[in-house]
Structure formats: C-alpha cells, structure tokens
Amino acid sequence: MADKEANPSKKPTLLFLNKESEPLFSKKNRVLLTDPLDDNNPITVQVLGVCSALAITVQLKPALVMTLSVIAVMGASNVIISLLRNLIPNRIRIIVQLVVVASMVILVDQILRAYAYDVSKQLSIFIGLIITNCIVMGRLEAFALGNGVWRSFLDGIGNAAGYGFILIVVAFFRELLGSGKLFGYQVIPDAFYEMGYENNGLMLLSPMALITVGVFIWIQRARNRKLIEKN
C-alpha cells in the first residue's frame, strides 16, 4: 500500500488515549474520509474488490445494503484491530485480522437474516465474501495496525464509502438502463416503451458492470489529472 502512514505521534500511546489533542475532524483526519472517495478509491484507483462490484450491482437495493454492510464491517474491524494493535502478537497478526473480519461478517449476516431476510437472500454468498474483499484486510494491515482508534475508524469508513460509492453509481446505471427501475420502482414512463424503447438486457450482465466501472475511471481521470501515470 502506497499510503501507509506512520503513527502521527512518536510518544507512547495507551490504547486510544492519545496524549496529543487534535480536533476530531482536523484536516488530516478529514482526508482519511475523503481521499478514498476520489484520489485513492479502492475500486477505480487501487482496483480492489472488483468481483463483488460486478456481482451485486444489478439493482440499487442490494448495492446499498452491501455498502452499509461493508461500512459496518470495515469500521468495526478497523476499530477492533486498532484497539488491539499493541497487543496482537506479530506472528499471528494476519490470523487475528481474519478472525476479526470473519466474526464481523458473520454478525452482519446473522442480523440481515433476522431483520432483512429478502436482501440477505439476494446478496446470498456475497455477504460472506466480504471476508475475502481485499479492501478490508488491506486497510487493517496497512492502516489500523499502525494508527489510533479514531483515525482507523475514519479510514475504515472512508474506504468502505469509497467502495460503496462506486457500487451505487454502477448499480444506478445498471438498474436504470437494464430494467428501467430505481430501487425497484418503475422510473421510465410506460409511454417510452409504447414508443419502442426497450430495456437493455446487456446491462444486467456482469460485463457491463466492468464497462461501467471503466467509463467511471475514464471520467475520473479526465477530471483528476493527478491519477494519470506519468510515463
């Protein structure tokens, strides 16, 4: 990870009690939230978590639930790993991260099954596969193990939101063009269909998710020159 950051304070920190006082939303902390939305987006810049981005973006609703689930999992596991960062034995740190992420995912899955059964059926294995989403483990290893609780929390939320932002944008276009609906409600008027408009069935297939992400990357790079490789 290029953005690996050292602990900002060189003084010993006891769990989350940081001796230096810093406003909660200082500029440095805000960057943790906003950076993954654009400059360092997990999907379009780091190209992580693409598999699930293809699979669950046919409709907005599952994409939104997936986003919220990933935000919950990443926020919580970043906080837990950050809290334990001075206790975790170095040699089994990956196992510890995996156990923490896996338990968070199981919790989310169980809660969805109890309170949002239909969505949980729709997302089926993809909730379980949050465990394998490289973004989650990547942030634990690169950030939470070396940073304080609050900063790690922001970083987790930020990266999950950056991931979810792409999911929602892609799902918006796929549902709109593929089924003429948004959140399951018909938005393209019947008159259009009578005039010969047809839903684009191709939008429902995963290749179009990849192409939509590609178009997004194109627009993002045209707008944000920093992202263009120099050579």
Binding site: N7, P12, N86, L87, P89, N90, R93, L145, G146
Partner: peptide
C-alpha cells in the same frame, strides 16, 4: 509493521 518496541504494554509480544 506499524509498531515500535516502546509501544508494548505487556510481556514480550513475540514469545
């Protein structure tokens, strides 16, 4: 990794 020896709270973490 992002830890330094003085951050250690307890017994040797690598034992």
């Amino acid at each position: 990794m992002g830890f330094s020896p003085q951050n250690c709270l307890v017994m040797n973490r690598d034992s």
